[in-house]
C-alpha cells in the first residue's frame, strides 16, 4: 500500500520536474532558469527521500543534506554572477 503511494508521489514529482525542465529550456531570462534549476534540485531531494523509504534504507540521508547544501551554494553563486558579473571578489569594499 505504502509502495503504491510512493510510486504515485514519484510520478507527481516527475511531472513537476518536467514542468521545471520546460522552464529551464524556455525561460525568457537567466533568472528564470536559475530558479527552475534550484527547484529541480529541491525536487531531487524529495526523490532521494522517497527512494530511501522505498528501498528501506537510511544510507541515503547524507545525500539529502549534501544535495541541499550544493543547491544553495550553486544558487548563491549564480545569483552573485547575475548581480555583480564576478563571483569571487578580491576585496569587495575597495576594488568594486
Amino acid at each position: 500500500m505504502l509502495d503504491i503511494l510512493i510510486y504515485i508521489a514519484l510520478a507527481i514529482l516527475l511531472l513537476a520536474m518536467l514542468g521545471m525542465l520546460y522552464r529551464v529550456i524556455k525561460g525568457p531570462t537567466t533568472a528564470d532558469r536559475v530558479i527552475a534549476l534550484d527547484s529541480i534540485g529541491i525536487a531531487l531531494i524529495s526523490v532521494v527521500a522517497l527512494l530511501s523509504i522505498l528501498l528501506d534504507t537510511t544510507i541515503f540521508f547524507e545525500v539529502i543534506l549534501l544535495l541541499s547544501i550544493l543547491a544553495f551554494i550553486g544558487t548563491v553563486a549564480f545569483s552573485k554572477f547575475l548581480e555583480r558579473g564576478e563571483i569571487i571578489h578580491h576585496d569587495r569594499d575597495n576594488d568594486l
Binding site: 547544501i69 550544493l70 551554494i73 548563491v76 553563486a77 552573485k80 563571483i87 569571487i88 571578489h89 578580491h90 576585496d91 569587495r92 569594499d93
Partner: peptide
C-alpha cells in the same frame, strides 16, 4: 571546501 567557498561568495578572498 564548499563551506569555504560559501564564505568566499558572501565575503571576499582577502577577508
Amino acid at each position: 571546501a564548499a563551506a569555504l567557498v560559501l564564505l568566499l561568495l558572501a565575503f571576499d578572498s582577502k577577508t
